[in-house]
Design a protein around this nucleic acid. Sequence first.
DNA 1: TTACTTTATTGCAATATTACGATAAATGAA
DNA 2: TTCATTTATCGTAATATTGCAATAAAGTAA
Lengths: 107, 107
Amino acid sequence: MGATKSYQFSDHHNEMSALLKALAHPARVAIVEYLLKVESCICGDIVDHLPLAQPTVSQHLRELKNAGIIQGSVEGTAICYCLSEKALVKLKNYFGKLESKVKSKCC
Amino acid sequence: MGATKSYQFSDHHNEMSALLKALAHPARVAIVEYLLKVESCICGDIVDHLPLAQPTVSQHLRELKNAGIIQGSVEGTAICYCLSEKALVKLKNYFGKLESKVKSKCC
DNA sequence: TTACTTTATTGCAATATTACGATAAATGAA
DNA sequence: TTCATTTATCGTAATATTGCAATAAAGTAA
């Protein structure tokens, strides 16, 4: 025991939770909002904008990339990161759907 | 080392990541969607709809409640759970804002 | 080539999460 | 009261996450 019983849940539930898990850390929320704020891809200065060591930031970036939330492409000696619109659209649509269906007639 | 350095991030980043963290598990996504599906509050049969033991479900419900995503009220010998519209609106607006701002002009 | 810059990976310690058996608490019914 | 039902909590084991120093890898520049 201790590990999430992923195999007991549907693909949909696992996919959504994986996407949300990628954003379930303040550093990763901060990275996403930073990429959004500069309105373009960022080459190389993400580490300087976070209060964490370089290996830690690299680890967070990898998690965001694995989840499909950001993309990275090699640009000379640096790497350019940018947001993946597809993932954000998916999240927007998901919560839009949830919110539109919710009825506030609770006991 | 090991613990998230919450104090290094803004309140906003911590609040958003906490809300998303509450949904970063397939069981909790499943609970939210189940509450949505029945379109009303559920009294007592959440445990039967999940492939987890009762103490585990109770733990997940508490996390959702602490995050403000669901509400629970005592109804006789059972407890009625329902979704909190406020949290879902917050999430919908957040991703709506992100998606509307994202520019897909990446390198 | 060497030196430099930037990012990734490795290895590990500290902490957090997940899951569940056992048990407690709370309520209703008999 | 006692019994049954339902949910919460405690305790603990297994696993996952977080963070960083050290180091590697990959590229540019001289």
